[in-house]
Design a protein around this nucleic acid. Structure first.
Lengths: 190, 190, 190, 190
DNA sequence: GATGAATGAGTGTTCATTCAT
DNA sequence: CATGAATGAACACTCATTCAT
């Protein structure tokens, strides 16, 4: 039998990411992906059960890479502010380096497929950060409010600032990132 | 020329909003809108040039209503923090009252149609808020950083917190909204 | 608005019957029907909800014509044998005249769509014949056995004999039909 | 050359019969058969030239088993009515015992593949019965009519009565089979 | 102004079959 | 002999849009 051609698999994923970035989720079709990946539409179904599976798998794959990058050099023993700052910089670094990955996840998050992801599996990556926040609250360093409120001011601003559509003037300079971090920290600190 | 039937126009818009909320942008088609609005698909083309025009017009229409509601009782003479707080509460009020309008704009923002909106027209509504911010910076009440950074911590958190997908535990109680506002203000104030 | 073109509807039905006869149910596809009827595949969906609807509607339509033809000159007052004989001849007449209609129903009966037909609606047409049989049993002219057994020897032989696949030597001459009827009557009579 | 694995061959045939019975001819595909038989789709092509060959071979195979069962204890010396009765009971026995074989042949008979069977090969099995009938005609025990007419009343009723779709009330009790045989014999006897 | 009919282009998906191993 | 990978062609069906009335 023929051996599964891993380069085909990779080509399909890259074509998927590229197309979703270029024309959006709505317009991205199996046949267009196939054309760009230079395979037959039927070949895609050798690797994925259906379109949903293709999209979700690609998303989860990217999310894993992202969470690994973000938690790089994670050191629980540092002061809470420093842990948080490290996380903040890692995020901007990674997104700056792989903007198309980030863009894909942004598009995906607001697509109907989004509901199908096993949230636990993905959010697990953030469990460590959650523990740090909990510690910060206990130690009266961070405000004692609903977790959704805290994440809204700590994590989502990163995505908002990196989103070209939302932030057109913001450039990811050292200075700007530092400033933005200051706002985030001022928001959550007691 | 016969006068265009304004009730039909309204029915089409309402059907559009309803469908986008129920089944998402991808699945919302002209024929489904027509069925719910109880008109012929062809009739929709009497009022809109094409699907894109329908979506964008509906979006702009909602955005106008939203900005009017948000700027209700705007009083330039109040202290900056109070003006900002008024804005904050107006926003939560309006979104709580018309969640389907808000949900539509959220879906729209991440659709490819989003690029087609005349940003200026929409953002004009926020010009007054921008002036207040500018004044705050000048008076050294608000941090002197990029505008994108400020809006990221002042405006977007409202949308994030109201988005059921992103914030599942957050409930729009007086107490929670108050807390969230505190974080926002702490972020931007000097 | 454009008026529904009844000739298109008719063309679709005729193409359906023709194709099912020529290449069978399995191979008959919407696009092939469209090609023969000289319409767009999409046009078929103006007249029918889906393939199933097209097939079932065509079947029911034919079945109605068939039952009307078969019950032509039905006269309850005649002797039972004569009523039955009339029915027998009417059937051979009609099938001889419209063999493609008959062939379609034969193919349809053994297709998976068959289960979807509202049996009652179709079999209602045979209610009158059933009453005659019941009378024949009461008057001790016809054997008192399960109805399925009676119909197996009274009605199905007509279809078997008219089926070219099953009966290759049988030709529908007056003499042969007369003979076949004799067997049927001998089978059911007391 | 390695010896073809007879168990695989058998598994493929059984999977084919099972699937045709469960989901019908239309929906039965090579890949589904392969999945149930636990072989690769490609393996099926080791044993059969193509799908048509698979279906026809399976059919012929079943037909042979059927004709052997039906002619069990065939005794030419018995009275004609007894030979025929024996045949009649053998048939009901066999179909009652292996309903899925019978169901497959029924489905197959009305499929387009049906035309491709070498009729002679199959019908040869019935040659002996044909000779008995011929003898019956010569001895003026059986009506002297077209052979198609005779088989229509002697053989096909068995299939009709066993077909669940056609006969829903008929149950294969000793009493009912006896009754049905009486009708068949009354039909053909002089 | 309003509309149902009509359609070419596209959708996601499955198919029978062949290829390379 | 046996197989998973690979595919062109087809499937049923829906789409946004235009046409004739």
């Amino acid at each position: 039998m023929r051996i599964k051609d891993e380069s085909k698999h990779e080509a399909i994923m890259q074509a998927t990411i590229q197309l979703v970035n270029e024309i959006g989720f709505v317009a991205t079709s199996i046949s267009k992906i196939a054309k760009i990946a230079e395979v037959s539409p039927a070949t895609i179904y050798v690797y994925y059960a259906n379109k949903e599976d293709l999209m979700v798998s690609t998303y989860v794959d990217i999310k894993k890479k992202l969470s690994q990058a973000i938690l790089r050099d994670f050191d629980e023993s540092l002061p809470i502010r420093d842990i948080f700052k490290k996380f903040w910089y890692n995020s901007f670094d990674y997104i700056g380096q792989f903007p198309h990955y980030f863009q894909f996840t942004e598009q995906f998050s607001s697509s109907p497929f989004s509901d199908l992801v096993n949230k636990e599996a993905v959010e697990n990556s953030y469990a460590q950060m959650m523990q740090v926040i909990q510690k910060g609250i206990t130690q009266k360093i961070i405000k004692d409010v609903d977790f959704d409120i805290l994440t809204t001011f700590m994590f989502y601003p990163i995505f908002t600032l990196c989103n070209k559509r939302l932030c057109q003037s913001f450039s990811k300079t050292e200075h700007n990132i530092e400033k933005a971090f200051t706002l985030a920290w001022d928001a959550i600190k007691l």
